[in-house]
Amino acid sequence: MSSLTTALEKAKLREYPILEEKIKTVIAGLDTFKAFLFECKMAGFSLCADVMGVDYLEYTEFMPERFAIIYNLLNPKNGERILVKVFVKDDEPVPTITDIWRTAEFHEREVFDLFGLEFSDHPDLRKILTPEDLDAHPLRKDFPLGETPTLFREGRFLDPAAFRAGLAGKDAGLSGWRGGSRIDSSLVPQLPTAVPSKER
């Protein structure tokens, strides 16, 4: 145990429950975590290695909230690490930490993109990895993996069942291709009109 962690523990850590000893994991509240992260930075954890989101919707154990954000801090001098876990509700803005570490810009955009969690006061909160017209957050547990239609904006619509049926030649499928000749365009299944996600 280094002096830095000891100092940190004396100062603040005691107020937070420690989950794991192997890599020290701490649970912090949504209102106080930013102050704690800043204190960690002052205590030597000057590199924010990672910010990741978790969706505990289908977890087998009870969790305080549906989502969690895990901040992964590193002391570059000795490789010490502390994980700070913050539980957040859906549709509840999380204070950004981009004013403490600039590196959090991309990380928070990633969490916003893949989980749909919003960060207040983020300088440039846009989607980062998924296509601009994908109207969903893929890493949420209720986002299905295949087997269900994926709705894009501008009316683009991908229905895997129809797509496979088209490949097997049973049905017109998405492209209207039935293995041989182009068929009448009226036989192509009508695409549902795009509905904004809020209404869904």
Partner: peptide, 25 residues
């Protein structure tokens, strides 16, 4: 890799802290 297991045979959540993603910033 941050691996979260819920006791099942598949990882409940797996997240890669990928260096290039950060370095590109």
């Amino acid at each position: 890799a941050y691996v979260i297991s819920d006791g099942g045979s598949m990882p409940y959540r797996i997240h890669f802290r990928s260096p290039s993603f950060v370095n590109l910033q």
